[in-house]
Design a protein around this nucleic acid. Structure first.
Lengths: 143, 143
DNA sequence: TATCAAACAATAATCTTTATCAAACTTTTC
DNA sequence: GAAAAGTTTGATAAAGATTATTGTTTGATA
């Protein structure tokens, strides 16, 4: 307990964010959950330990953890639904500054070694690669 | 004109969906847009050609195009925000039947050849790979 | 311990998506 | 071709996800 508290305190210092009780509970609950829970699911669990907490606080802390680098966003894509109209096999270059998405052909990317089966008998249909980085425009802007 | 109409008609027949004027306009507008427009953006353009169309119709047709295989979903992830709590470098196996997401270690995947620069001077930070396929559970269920 | 910026809870507002349902349109059947 | 059967549409309500606002409380630090 003391150790966990201490490490959370250190983590906050490293990332330049304040230590609060709510924040610590959100962090610990998230760390304890497997997979990729939604904010609502995190909220439900946190609420058991801190009944007065608000959903907005959970959202704010999740965002804060992402911004400060404690956790990472799982998808760099925009929130609303997007579809592919491009028939060619391709992947995406996603700018971490401006979120712009550009297609890149499968060949140009110099692709993944394909396998039919992966761990636990997962049957592969296709790969979808996001290359996260900085687009030329944002490189110029920050130069 | 006649050709385009004809090919849309054929496309609908192939995919077992009815030919309607609204559907055709949504399809043609989407095909004509570069990048990955949001449903709202598609709606805005379609509305210029069919002022009486409703946003719900655009949504319904986008879903129909995805379900019937005319277009593809760009991200297989769930709608709400998700973050990574897993510190190890890893990627994701996403089940196309049940949408379950499982982590897979970078090494187990047998990785991508890394490059620093890609087309147009895009500066690479990291790769994020989604392997789309069928999980063991869903394979059993459909066997 | 007093001060001040940051974080909090509560809640309203916004944005995105889905559901409902009667009317209009497509397809099918004759 | 016209009527029946099945789909799609528009309008709108509702649900779901996220952000903004505001007055209050709390944490860090002098």
């Amino acid at each position: 307990m003391v150790n966990e508290s201490k490490s959370f305190r250190e983590l906050c210092e490293e990332n330049g964010i304040a230590v609060t009780h709510q924040r610590q509970v959100v962090y610990e609950v998230m760390k304890s959950m497997h997979g990729h829970p939604s904010p609502e699911e995190v909220y439900a669990r946190v609420k058991k330990k801190v009944p007065a907490i608000s959903l907005a606080t959970v959202y704010k802390n999740i965002h804060l953890f992402v911004e400060s680098g404690v956790f990472r966003k799982m998808s760099m894509h925009h929130g609303s639904v997007r579809v592919e109209m491009n028939d060619e096999p391709h992947h995406h270059m996603v700018c971490s500054k401006c979120s712009a998405i550009t297609d890149i052909g499968e060949k140009e990317l110099g692709l993944v070694p394909k396998r039919d089966r992966l761990a636990d008998g997962f049957l592969v249909e296709r790969y979808s690669v996001d290359v996260i980085g900085v687009c030329a425009k944002c490189q110029r802007a920050s130069a």
